[in-house]
Design a binder for these strands. Structure first.
Lengths: 335, 335
DNA sequence: TTGAAAGCGCTAACAG
DNA sequence: CTGTTAGCGCTTTCAA
């Protein structure tokens, strides 16, 4: 099957390629009659314009890039949904790039965007990302960039995120209200790179309630599951074991529950647990876990919407856009 | 910043664009000396070739499309990881398209691939997909297509999936071995569209063990959570309530556990539960749920690998490739 | 209202 | 070994 191009359409209709092109675009220069003929033949032959030819000519790819640290994590999967739904509606295509939390990869990926492959970029940076030259450079090449979830403060552009600081604060307040005096914050060591808002919120709540920060306040986990398990077990085995835990990374809930089970520590009796989580199974854990849930879909959707605004309106300034979508506290039996 | 193109490189070096192009490609026609000069300037000016220009010229986009029913579901998120890792290694880009289980959308998306935007397609079809014309048409336009997970039997091409039939069989055998006599299979009504291998496997196990198919064997759920809950509750409230349940859709585990909790039905005492699941929290449910887990990452990886083989070797015939990666039964306390 | 022609940036034949 | 040229398929002036 020889692909049908604009020239073959033109030949069939005894028109010039230029005229056909305009007719397809519904240009005012073209007569209604001609438009009808062109459209009808185009439909009949199922003409699909070559994306690379028109992209080259117009210097627009009708494509956006989404750069993510990972995607197995449910936050980003859901965010992709939000992004994709907006893009599909706008007739845009979505390229996905995973950095696997690797700064160098992020740099390489962004640099490649100078190829004109995409018209705009949505990015959630890696935990390692401190330097911002690669993003600034991309911006100064004229590429609109929207940051979401994992924000970099120094970059001037649209930012969409949740209220991490407040979430940490609210979660901790909740634990304190439930009687906790000795609270630990569980996180991944690597996330120290970007300012850990949640932890700061947690800290603030402790301070406001005159609860001292104990040496076991911050428990640093890693990607080594066995090790995390050990660390948590040792935490919960000791004498002045915490009476409340704030689990800032979803998957760390698992060792916490496992250890409690093994040590026969009653939740919420001896230990109250609250977790950042998007998992629908929160409600069937035993006990059902109190969670802070991020509006992942909405964050993706909002970020994409901003990007398209800047793509469609030349006078739209991304710099002025900051959106904060609040996370939701759902109280269940674990507290 | 005026984007640096191949002509500006040529001018700087007093060479012709053609020579520069060849040098960048490390062509044998070019002297080592010239190559060095070109490469060094290209690096210095951070030259990134225009993807649309070279794509148009070479009729290759260095991009593949991944067409998925959804992505919130963890199976597909993990599969994307597998796909992306192979693509990144091969220097390819990955476009994501979500059909949201909508056949018409799937058709529209595939039709657009005639634009030359992608060199190959990985697809997991919607539950509604019975007709195959859109896929055949894409193939006959010369596009390599690899099916994964949600396979269509009628299409002749590479297929990568797990052993759904056997998984259903094995899961059911397990329940029977644990003493179940009255087993129900929980699924989503819509998945009736594609042949439900898992259910057939389940059926076969029942038959082999001379267990009759009761009227409550197949429980049809939907996307209406409240309704699913009601249906499951009514199932588990009646006199000849099942003593074993095979949950074929991950999220249906939630109402099952909730109902058991509400009715004070002991798992595994009164009811044994086994679920198809990729959720790491399986082990902290109470009781920990016995699962069948699909090798999602590996399926994505294998599918992508096949696609790239066909992209790289003209003599590679996708038709002959069928890969079945077995799911894994993990026995926990719910059975 | 339509057509002709140039050119987006790159590559590949061919010539030198 | 390097340069010239044509052209990928489309859009967009400009001219008719």
């Amino acid at each position: 099957m020889p692909a049908v191009d604009i020239r073959s359409l033109a030949k069939h209709l005894n028109l010039s390629p230029g005229t056909v092109s305009k007719a397809l675009k519904d240009s005012y220069e073209i007569s209604a009659e001609t438009k009808k003929r062109v459209l009808s033949l185009a439909k009949k032959l199922n003409y699909v314009p070559n994306a690379y030819a028109s992209g080259l000519r117009k210097k627009r790819s009708k494509t956006i890039a989404v750069v993510l640290p990972e995607v197995a994590d449910s936050f980003f999967s859901i965010a992709i949904n939000g992004i994709e739904s907006v893009a599909q509606q706008k007739g845009y295509h979505v390229l996905i790039y995973l950095t696997h939390e690797n700064f160098l990869k992020e740099k390489t990926i962004l640099n490649d965007f100078k190829s004109g492959r995409v018209d705009g970029v949505l990015i959630s940076v890696t935990r390692e990302t401190i330097a911002t030259k690669h993003i600034l450079e991309l911006q100064s090449s004229g590429m609109p960039v929207v940051l979401f979830d994992r924000i970099v403060d120094q970059i001037e552009t649209a930012k969409v995120r949740t209220n991490d600081f407040e979430s940490g604060y609210i979660a901790t307040q909740h634990l304190i209200k439930r009687g906790c005096k000795n609270i630990s914050y569980l996180s991944n060591s690597k996330s120290l790179g970007i300012t850990n808002e949640r932890m700061e919120g947690c800290r603030k709540a402790l301070e406001e309630n005159d609860l001292s920060i104990k040496k076991n306040f911050f428990i640093e986990c890693s990607n080594d599951e066995a090790n995390n398990y050990k660390r948590i077990k040792s935490l919960l085995s000791q004498k002045d074991c915490p009476d409340g835990i704030l689990v800032s990374i979803e998957k760390l809930t698992i060792p916490v529950y496992q250890v409690c089970n093994e040590l026969k520590l009653n939740i919420p009796g001896s230990l109250k647990v609250i977790g950042f989580s998007l998992s629908p199974s929160a409600s069937i854990l035993n006990p059902a876990i109190t969670t802070i849930t991020q509006p992942a879909y909405e964050i993706g959707e909002a970020a994409a919407t901003l990007l398209f605004k800047s793509l469609e309106k030349s006078n739209f300034d991304l710099k002025n856009e900051k959106i904060i979508l609040p996370s939701v506290l759902t109280i269940r039996s674990s507290t």
